[in-house]
Design a protein around this nucleic acid. Sequence first.
DNA 1: AATAGGATGTTCAACTATCGAACAAGCCTT
DNA 2: AAGGCTTGTTCGATAGTTGAACATCCTATT
Lengths: 235, 235
Amino acid sequence: MSPDTTTQHSQTLSRGLRSLEILADSPKPLSIAELSSELGVHRSIAYRIVRTLEDHSLVVRDEAGKVSSGPGLAALARGVSRDLQTAALPELTVLANELGMTAFVAVWDRHDCVTLVTVEPRHSRAAVAQRPGTRHAFSAGAPGIAIQSAVSEEEWQRLAPGQPYRSESGAARLQGFATSHDEVIAGLSSVAAPVRVPGRLPAAVAVVYIRSAHPEAELGARIAASARAIEEQLS
Amino acid sequence: MSPDTTTQHSQTLSRGLRSLEILADSPKPLSIAELSSELGVHRSIAYRIVRTLEDHSLVVRDEAGKVSSGPGLAALARGVSRDLQTAALPELTVLANELGMTAFVAVWDRHDCVTLVTVEPRHSRAAVAQRPGTRHAFSAGAPGIAIQSAVSEEEWQRLAPGQPYRSESGAARLQGFATSHDEVIAGLSSVAAPVRVPGRLPAAVAVVYIRSAHPEAELGARIAASARAIEEQLS
DNA sequence: AATAGGATGTTCAACTATCGAACAAGCCTT
DNA sequence: AAGGCTTGTTCGATAGTTGAACATCCTATT
């Protein structure tokens, strides 16, 4: 077909992983026929993929044969930046309940910023839902600015070639936290502080809240303190 | 080699998934050489696997080339029983803070019971850590009993052939919750209530706490109330 | 400074795991 | 009972995978 002879990536594995992505995005269980057409492959291929995923508890089949994501994924996700998760979770819990806002940790993944863990406040009436796995470009949201502020512009160009370096990063570096308003969703604000650990890419602690007259400086100082507490546990 | 001609499961995909499991269990990043020897395959195979996993953001390589679990797994895990997670999280938060105990949801996966989401109380001084992905046989722990109590003994034999049906299930079905002491870890107790949703396998809401003179009946009633609140949101 | 050792990363022909058309079996509806 | 539709399995051909061999980088040692 295409003249590039070098595959450089595994077809079968890639299809299996795409299956997991498709299933994770699907609100309802899929039949194998539906999955195979989503994948653009023959049904018998989908059968073998599903059998294999099932062996690893990554998918589950219900009585009608429909396929959905399985609990094994929870175990795998637990291993992602395990020490960061461990150090951050108690801090996030305190932050969320103290401020009455959803608190979360976001990490740097290639072109964007991915939410890793979130904690909602005790009585989550007006709390903003921010679920793990959410992705945002660095051009949107306080966590992205906070992460950028943890690296110099030179390093940024080296690590993320082509990606713009936001002007807000300089100010964020000086005050120790970043803010954003109406960037991701209109009416929502967020405040974030970088978590720097030597040898790892920087991450960020952040909160989101509905637009209001919060004293941002205090909020920022509070979150930056949490970031330092997390850093200490990791060093 | 062996005379079974029917493979029935994909070698390449299985190796990729084993890689994810190995990385999730490893406390530190692995080199590709280490990973390949863990897998028992040639290094060049591990390279292709890692490249593919990297394309899907499921693994990350640091500057030294070491491989570790990537943020994409968080997005995949989010899709596991998404509606159950969504309905349960706020309830778990309230439970954890109200009782001062770690609260969690466990689901049925083949032979055992897997922790899906957990919430630790606000000030987690003495809180027991129960991380997502933890597996227990049905023979150990209150969540297993609670799940068993949601199905009849006939159905249990059909769905989990060979697995014993615990005698405590009958009592648990009557009172609406199950308890256990020193089953998983000496000194720890747990109380769990089943979450039944038509068309899906039963799950359980539970708390764990350090052995003490808690009034179990109250605790059980409280947790059973949470289970009902979750069920209502799912129906 | 130059050499040896060890590690990481890439190439390409041989081979074997994978692919997918064809087949078989179940399940509603007509 | 026949027809259509869906789910699941078989098996030869093929293309994706395999792994020895090669290239490259880094560090330690003489």
